[in-house]
Amino acid sequence: MNDLNTRSDSWARTNVKNTLRLGYWTAAWLITMALASFGPVFIWQSNKLLTGLAILFNLGVGFGMIMANKRHLKGLDELQQKIQLEAMALSLGVGLVVGLCYSSLDISNLISFDAEISHLVILMGLTYFAGVLVSHRKYQ
């Protein structure tokens, strides 16, 4: 029984640790993204060196977040990995198809506003979220 508790504790604890680590990296990435976006306007008055460094720092932290996400996914069990795979596949597919379609609409001036990358990020985030919810329900 003690062996079981230790084993399951260790599996669950590793998962919690991986999730927390991913949360910290994501928060750090968002903060460095905000720094790279707003720093040139509000803090260092468009100094190119500082702006470049902030962007490089954001890129580095972004790679850290990717590695944390990879570790988090590897720590999940096989059903959880399948749920994540289905949600990410949906998000990637929708992002690619709708993103290119949106860009075509912008290029051909069929829409009156510019196609912003942030719109695509929001769409992919919402699609991923919906994909996770639907898959969770499917396997309940």
Partner: peptide
């Protein structure tokens, strides 16, 4: 059982209901 097999409870439930085939 989930603890014994080091998977989530949802995975055990899905396998028992035949919604998910284990590796």
């Amino acid at each position: 059982l989930a603890d014994e097999l080091e998977v989530s409870r949802q995975t055990i439930n899905a396998i028992e209901k035949g919604k998910f085939d284990p590796s």
